[in-house]
Design a protein around this nucleic acid. Structure first.
Lengths: 109, 109
DNA sequence: ACGCGCTTTCACAGGTTGTTCACAGGATGG
DNA sequence: CCATCCTGTGAACAACCTGTGAAAGCGCGT
């Protein structure tokens, strides 16, 4: 898994880098790991437990919120890097899905 | 790998010399080796273990601090040779990256 | 054996990141 | 429309990582 490309987003796990249009995102270890896990499963709904298993070492508890917290952090940084795009979608009761979509009602009223 | 040039920094590993604007830096063996390892991977984030493997012979332990100590020594000498420039950047949780950047808030208030 | 310079290890301070909480806001099924 | 469950969010707290000065260890030439 050298490079993961999803739209304008490009991730090189081996080089500890994720970039948008070649511009590197400033991510922490966990953020990069989670983004990588999501990108590796782009366009598919991924359960919290699967994401958790892919990123964290300890066992998953259903009341665990770390994934949610990090999804939020990623959303903030991705929105800053890709204004007008929704990259991570929530699937109520199931999990999350990564797939960049230009969202309606962007920067114009 | 005859010569490594990164901005005003030039390294000639074969001649055991590193210089800024042609002015040689006064480095010890380890310092030169580490600088060379970093320069050979300029603009990329390099993990401690990779740097360690490139410079030291013995196996790397995660609690090893030698890299940090030498990065500091290099920073001191580089700052003296290139006032106002930040050459080695820290990537928390990942490692270090060499790429000279004129840092804001330099020598003038 | 001694002094000297370089390397490695230590200990502690300071920062950054990771985890957990508590509550607010939404979605779902009846 | 209501009760309930799920997710969003900001902040507190804990854990981990890096910066740094100094001490200890080494090898070498004198």
């Amino acid at each position: 898994m050298e490079v993961l490309s999803v739209g304008r987003l490009e991730i090189r796990p081996g080089e500890f880098v994720a970039a948008v249009d070649g511009r590197p995102l400033d991510l922490t270890v966990r953020e990069l790991q989670l983004l990588t896990a999501l990108a590796a499963r782009a366009d598919r709904i991924v359960s919290r437990s699967e994401l958790y298993a892919a990123v964290w070492d300890r066992p998953y508890r259903s009341d665990e919120r770390s994934v949610d917290v990090y999804v939020r952090k990623l959303r903030l940084k991705l929105e800053a890097a890709l204004p007008g795009w929704t990259v991570i979608h929530t699937h109520f009761g199931f999990g999350y899905r990564l797939s960049p979509v230009l969202h309606t009602r962007a920067t114009n009223p």
